[in-house]
Structures are given as C-alpha cells and as structure tokens.
Simulated assay, not measured.
Amino acid sequence: MTAQRKGRNAQSAIVYKTTSVVDDRSNEQVQVDMDNGVEVMAAFTAASTRDIAVAGQATHEQYTMIVRPDIPDVGMWSVVQWRGEFWDVVAPPEYHHGTRHVRHWSVKIRRRMGGGA
C-alpha cells in the first residue's frame, strides 16, 4: 500500500460493484449491486473535467480514486459513496502494476447530479 492509502491522507469510501442479471427477455444485463458495498481506504486527487461523456452530467467535480488492487467487479457501472454523496465511475478503471506495495487501481469518478443513489 502506498502512504496515501494508509496514512493520514486516506479516506473511507464504499464501492458498489457490478453484477450480471437476466431480465424478463432472457437478456444478460449489468447493474449496480447497491445491497453489497465494500468499504475501502483510498486516496483522492482532483482530475481534469474537459470532457463531458453524457449530456446532463456536466459537473466540475471529478476525482481520481486510488484504491487497492484486489477489488473485483469494479467497472463503468459501479458507484462510489464518498463524503456522503454518490459518485459514478466515468472511465474504465486503470490497473497499475508494480511491486506489492505500489500496485493499485486508478478509478475516475464524477459526482452524481443531485448526489443521490
């Protein structure tokens, strides 16, 4: 772990992973599992917000969350609860390999409009 993720700069967050479900028409769909969040310690840094992926999601509050590498099923449909608000994962998480002490995921998150789940 880096000092950021376990030192005084570490902040608690809850990551809601994705799960696959089958709908009424036998189609497999990905959705957020809001019943089973995983509490993590992470470091947060401000990120650039030049690009707006979806109309209506224009916000300047975008961060990069640096978190441990052993959290499975975190992807584009995942949700993060941090500082009492909900944040969408806006890009595929990036895995950074290295020694055991430095490997981590970088996850770009953007605050949900209205802050709700």
Rank of each mutant, 00 (worst) to 15 (best):
T2A: 09
Q4A: 11
Q4H: 08
K6L: 12
K6G: 11
G7C: 08
G7T: 10
G7W: 10
N9S: 15
A10N: 06
Q11S: 07
Q11V: 10
S12D: 12
S12Q: 12
I14L: 03
K17C: 05
T18E: 15
S20A: 12
V22Y: 05
V22C: 04
D23N: 15
S26M: 13
S26D: 15
S26R: 15
N27R: 14
N27M: 06
Q29S: 03
V30R: 11
V30A: 08
V32E: 05
V32N: 05
D33Y: 02
D33A: 03
D33V: 02
D35S: 09
N36P: 00
N36T: 04
N36I: 00
N36L: 00
N36D: 03
G37S: 04
G37C: 01
V38L: 10
E39I: 02
V40R: 01
M41R: 14
M41F: 09
A42Y: 04
A42M: 06
A43Y: 13
R50D: 15
I52N: 14
G56S: 09
G56N: 08
T59V: 10
E61V: 02
Y63K: 10
Y63D: 03
Y63Q: 09
T64H: 07
I66H: 12
I66T: 15
V67N: 02
R68S: 13
P69H: 11
P69K: 09
I71R: 03
P72W: 04
P72G: 07
D73R: 14
M76D: 14
W77A: 13
W77N: 13
W77G: 11
S78T: 07
V80E: 04
W82P: 01
G84M: 04
G84K: 05
E85A: 14
F86G: 08
V90F: 00
P92N: 15
P92R: 14
P92A: 14
P92V: 11
H97R: 13
H97P: 11
G98F: 10
T99H: 06
R100Y: 14
H104D: 05
H104M: 05
W105R: 07
S106K: 15
V107W: 06
R110T: 02
R110A: 09
R111L: 12
R111P: 00
M113E: 11
G114L: 05
G114S: 07
G115Y: 12
A117D: 12
